[in-house]
Design a protein around this nucleic acid. Structure first.
Lengths: 155, 155
DNA sequence: ATGTATGCAAACCATTTGCAATGAC
DNA sequence: GTCATTGCAAATGGTTTGCATACAT
């Protein structure tokens, strides 16, 4: 899609600017990883990213994956989440409709939850002696399926 | 303090109810851990809990610590947080003035942030097909000290 | 008496690190 | 040519697991 290509160009440029500003080298590995994320991987963990890179026949080591991810986090092109398990999840940060997360404490399913009012209220908070850059709101509870199962159990 | 003792009694009873309901044994280790948390450890990680238990001359294995913490999480007497590093933090959940968290992305300091309006708005949200039990709001940014340092750097 | 919980040590697994080889500049 | 970056393999460190022993019931 044209729009996606445009976004890809923008994030590549932002990445280039960041790398230049920080005197980092512009390696093909780094751009390939960014490309994959902004083409195929809206949400992902390290393992699936590693395999997706392999599938594209662009083999990178895990070390490079972690190194690059740190850069992408630093320049805010990627967000990192930890939902209570010991796995880190990542998602695109640029032009990714902002959302909150609903986490089922039973089956660990994660849903996106968009709510403009919540976003506005949280973003407009003035906080003393703190300069906010971004936030994560995780709401824990039971997804619909698990709530039904719990109900059935009690009867 | 009297009030603290009362709270301790209440959480012990809640724990007892949970253990009974789930056919778990009421071991001295489990109660000693709960006692420590609700007496001395408002916020803690596993390592500091382990050492604090030792200082009380009540040695427990890390395995027991993890096992017990899972029970305390299940019965909602303890909350778990992960702020982006690979360490899990815990805090009391019962009668612990609810608060959000401010995380400095530079020095990783964590501050509590109380805001009744935010809490109300978030708690009163009706979410379709999801039954919330609790939530975590993490606001990332620069603490006062780090913001000053950044400013100085740029000049 | 039964079987759950404990302590210990080993295993696990995501992430990090050290180092020689590669390649961006 | 120089030095940051890569891949690899080993190390790290928080958490989990297996198993024999202890102990709550």
């Amino acid at each position: 899609m044209d729009k996606d290509n445009k976004i890809l160009e923008i994030v590549k440029q932002k990445f280039t600017e960041y790398l230049t500003a920080n005197k980092c080298r512009k390696t093909p590995e780094r751009y390939a990883i960014l490309d994959l994320i902004y083409t195929d991987q809206r949400h992902f963990d390290m393992d699936s990213l590693y395999e997706a890179m392999n599938k594209r026949n662009f083999r990178v080591s895990r070390a490079t994956l972690y190194n690059t991810m740190q850069l992408l986090l630093d320049c805010k092109l990627v967000l990192k989440h930890q939902f209570g398990q010991n796995i880190s999840f990542y998602e695109r940060a640029y032009n990714n409709d902002f959302h909150h997360h609903l986490i089922c404490t039973n089956c660990h399913e994660i849903q996106e939850y968009k709510d403009a009012e919540l976003r506005t209220v949280i973003q407009n908070k003035k906080i003393k002696r703190f300069t906010p850059s971004h936030y994560s709101l995780y709401i824990y509870g039971l997804c619909n399926a698990c709530a039904k199962k719990e109900k059935a159990k009690k009867i």
